[in-house]
Simulated scan of single mutants.
Amino acid sequence: MVFFPVRQIEIDPFSLTLMPMQQEHLGALHGLSVALGWPHRHADWAANLDSGTGIVAVDEAGRVHGSAMTFSYHRDLSAIGMVIAHPKLARTALFRTLATEALEQSTGAAFLNACQQDVSFYRDLGVRSAAPVFRYEGFLPCGFSLARNVRPFRPQDRPRLHQLDQSGYCADRSRLVATLLEQSETYVIETCGHVTGFAMRRRFGRGHVIGPVIAANETDALSLTTSLMAGLAGQFLRLDTRQTEGSFVGFLAALGFRARPDVTTMTTTNLTFSPEIYAISGHSTG
């Protein structure tokens, strides 16, 4: 668990207090993200606070001007996300202060998904580029059904899901996975009676997002993904992936989903990401 200390900073023309993010800050943060064109709902901010720790910059009148979050995955890895600053302070040191604070409070190695315009900024902080993340999104043109070897998650599958996620990320993300299980429709795929992959779908932004998807191969990843598309014909769907070629992304393109090199994953060390991760859980959590 990360604990952000309370302290004063001077960001011309404001005197701001950095303090731990609380539920009462989420309304203002949601309004700030809407103003910047982010798709996050208030519920999406709340979900992140359930699985991470945040810091906010508040002025003397109690107005929130920015935030940053850290998602600690045991003692060996942290994800940095939800770094946002009020547009009027975009040219001040606030964004840099928030990002630096989150990086300094992270445990072990850290990674983040940076918008393209922020990549050079994070490089200046000593974070290096690792891999692009492509956002596939659009209105699902057709319906799908549950694949033969895919079934809904059962409570007894929980230890295996944690094991698969830990293997994919080389880190213990149990707190995040627990939060996602509460919010998501979750399916698993079985091979010879053993769970070998899983995928989740939850409400997010304009519709639904699928992720994470962790599978042994593209065929299994497609079976999980199409199963989660069941009943969503005509609805808005999003999936974020580091996959750059193969039948998985070919299928998404065939649906007519637009692929955008939305963000770049950046790391503080030479992290590698498992090819078994076909969709990430989110830009902030990885």
Rank of each mutant, 00 (worst) to 15 (best):
A171M: 09
G250D: 07
V213G: 05
Y122I: 08
S15F: 08
Q23R: 10
S223I: 00
R135M: 08
T244Q: 14
H42F: 14
I80S: 08
S174P: 14
F204K: 01
A131T: 11
Q8C: 06
R202Q: 02
M229K: 00
V263H: 05
H25R: 03
P155I: 13
G246P: 01
A199M: 04
S15W: 13
R260M: 12
D157I: 15
L161M: 14
E60C: 11
S33K: 03
S106Y: 07
T264H: 02
A109C: 04
T241S: 13
R201I: 01
T100V: 06
H162L: 15
F204M: 03
A114H: 06
M69A: 10
Q235Y: 00
S33I: 01
F248D: 05
I280W: 03
I280S: 00
S33C: 04
G246F: 04
R75V: 01
A131Q: 14
R154Q: 15
Q163H: 15
R242Q: 13
A114L: 12
T107I: 10
F14T: 00
S274L: 02
R238K: 06
I210Y: 00
P13L: 03
D118V: 05
S174W: 14
G81W: 06
T268S: 10
S106A: 06
T219N: 12
I84C: 14
T225M: 01
T264W: 07
L125F: 11
F204Y: 12
T186I: 04
I84Q: 10
G234S: 07
Q23I: 09
L252V: 01
L103Q: 05
I11L: 11
P5D: 04
Q23K: 07
R7E: 09
P275D: 14
Q235R: 06
S281I: 07
S106K: 04
P141R: 01
G81Y: 02
R154P: 07
A93E: 09
H42I: 09
